[in-house]
Design a protein around this nucleic acid. Structure first.
Length: 515
RNA sequence: GCUCGGUUAACCAAAUUGGCUAAGGUACUUGUCUUUCUAACAAGCAAUUGCGGGUUCGAGUCCCGUACCGAGUACCA
């Protein structure tokens, strides 16, 4: 290959073009952890002027779910990750769907077979399961390795004639990697530093399944090599099999151009320990998927996008799950992230998935969102002028943009009930006199604007010698039913003169009857 | 069981060649806002860094032991 010229200094290695890949399998909605993995890949690619590839790992035909691939592409595009090469885009290494690359894997597994680095194995799943059980009952674990393979049904133990007979007869087989009995594998993980493992603890992993498809292990090594991937950035769950992947690169003679590895910390459950799962989302009432996902049976799983999470907040939240800039900055645009991101600053320990943090980021971004956009998107049924006032009134007090619409609806609804605790504490003679006087003065206000309303309230209360603080909360209850809320003067301006008067009349009447 | 990882306040989390007083956020408490508040702003409270040893002038950081938690251990990725 053209890359033959490579076994030299590290410096030259790092100057090699940066090419990273996101390689999900289309088995359903994309887990939010996958989005983070994609994001880290993307950030590294952009930072170093490299390419981001999307490869679909659909080698498990039994788990394939239609629609998942489109979903993945849409999810990535939602958060702003653009693909330079791969499924949906094309590129020089097509196809990018592993199911369409079968012959390639067959060719390479045949190469390993020819070089005696892999072998045919005819043991059935049932036989192996039984074997595992036996071992387990004896307190040890079954391994298909240098020792046991000599007692099992494979091309190492079968005579050439028997082997040929089985193959000719079409007996199902898998191809396994022949892991050396005694050897040390070590590789440098960009996040975890040197990892070493003795080959005696590894087992002869299946490379090709009996259905003719490769396993993840073979497919990802072959493809990463062929697609000239420079950095493999993936979840920690792959760390245990990484040594075996190194062995595969070695077996193919590709070790000198092997990509660098970076195994990302896990996304942990919000409570307790363990990997974040779909169930945790149901339990905590939050999504686990970026976009709403519809299962083949029609059932739906919620998505962050539909729940009202802004994509900027999502990115910011996700990027900080396992990475930090080392400064006190917490809000980052995608551009700033591309600038600041480094693999070196990813930490090793798992990151707790704290949905409150996601909400906090959403609030921060919502606050800075242009009023005009929010008004147009979430208050389409209001006049522009009114809509802008409503947005201004609520956007710093809510977490999700759609809440602005809900708050607006509530604002225009005459209260049916009044906060009892506050009525009990604050509804007294002064409150009644003050509010009545204020109400009676309202018709004379020409421009029903917050400033003028405030001015009138001041005047009326001054005449009566009542302090503003004494009745403000009661006034709010009379108008909205609730003891807390946004700026009251602006609220009244939006509600409108007629309705404010009507509500006050109603409240005075009802509350007087109650007390 | 075995292999590989992790453990810093109530919670999240930083301290990346061992080096000033162990960041920051959330929550909580208090104050300010002559107009309330669940908002905003300000201040405050909170950690012998899982535990036990060791190396060192100096350890969250390195070494040994131990406890707990996780990941992997499939013809799934």
């Amino acid at each position: 290959m053209l890359r033959a010229n490579v076994n030299h200094s590290k410096k030259q290695m790092t100057q090699q073009a940066v090419r990273v890949r996101f390689a999900p399998s289309p088995t359903g909605g994309l887990h939010i952890g996958g989005v983070r993995t994609a994001l880290y890949n993307y950030l590294l690619a952009k930072k170093l002027g490299g390419k981001m590839l999307l490869r679909i790992e659909d080698t498990d035909q039994t788990r394939f779910v239609s629609g998942a691939e489109e979903y993945i592409i849409e999810a990535l595009s939602w958060v702003g990750i653009t693909i330079d090469e791969g499924v949906g885009v094309g590129g020089p290494h097509e196809p990018y769907r592993q199911s369409e690359r079968k012959e390639i894997y067959q060719k390479y597994s045949q190469q390993l077979l020819d070089e005696d680095k892999a072998y045919y194995a005819f043991d059935t799943s049932e036989e192996l399961d039984a074997m595992r059980q036996t071992f387990e009952s004896q307190g040890s674990a079954f391994q298909y390795n240098a020792i046991t393979r000599l007692k099992l049904s494979n091309s190492l133990t079968l005579s050439p004639e028997d082997l040929k007979a089985k193959l000719d007869a079409g007996v199902p087989y898998v191809i396994r990697l022949k892991i050396p009995a005694k050897d040390e594998v070590r590789f440098k993980d960009l996040i975890r530093d040197w990892v070493h493992v003795h080959t005696s603890t590894l087992d002869d992993k299946v490379l090709m399944k009996s259905d003719g498809m490769p396993t993840y292990h073979l497919a990802n090594v072959v493809d990463d090599h062929l697609m000239e991937i420079s950095h493999v950035i993936r979840g920690e769950e792959w760390l245990p099999s990484a040594p075996m992947h190194v062995l595969l690169y070695r077996a193919f003679g590709w070790e000198s151009t092997m990509p660098q590895f970076a195994h990302l910390p896990l996304l942990l459950k919000p409570e307790g320990n363990g990997k974040l799962s779909k169930r945790d989302g149901d339990l905590g009432g939050f999504p686990i998927f970026p976009l709403e996902w519809t299962n083949p049976d029609g059932s739906k799983a919620k998505g962050f996008r539909e729940e009202g999470y802004l994509k900027e907040a999502m990115v910011n939240f996700l990027v900080l799950l396992g990475w930090n800039p080392g400064t006190e900055q917490e809000l980052f645009s995608m551009e700033e992230l591309i600038e600041t991101f480094t693999l070196e600053r990813i930490n090793k320990s798992g990151a707790k998935f704290d949905i409150n943090k996601a909400k906090w980021f959403n609030q921060q971004y919502l606050k800075n969102y242009p009023d005009e956009d929010l008004a147009r998107m979430y208050l389409p049924n209001y006049e522009t002028d009114t809509a802008l006032k409503i947005v201004h009134l609520f956007k710093e007090r809510v977490t999700f943009p759609q809440e602005i619409g809900e708050e607006a609806t509530a604002l225009f609804a005459t209260p049916e009930t009044y906060d009892e605790a506050i009525v009990a504490a604050k509804w007294n003679d002064d409150a009644k006199r003050g509010i009545t006087a204020f109400k009676d003065a309202l018709p004379s206000i020409e421009n029903f604007l917050a400033e003028d309303i405030k001015h009138t309230l001041h005047e009326e209360l001054e005449k009566l010698g009542i302090k503003m603080g004494k009745i403000m909360q009661m006034l709010r209850v009379a108008l909205t039913g609730a003891g807390a809320g946004p700026d009251l003067m602006l609220s009244m301006e939006i509600i409108g003169k007629k309705e404010v008067i009507a509500r006050l009349e109603k409240a005075i009447l009802q509350l007087t009857v109650i007390s």
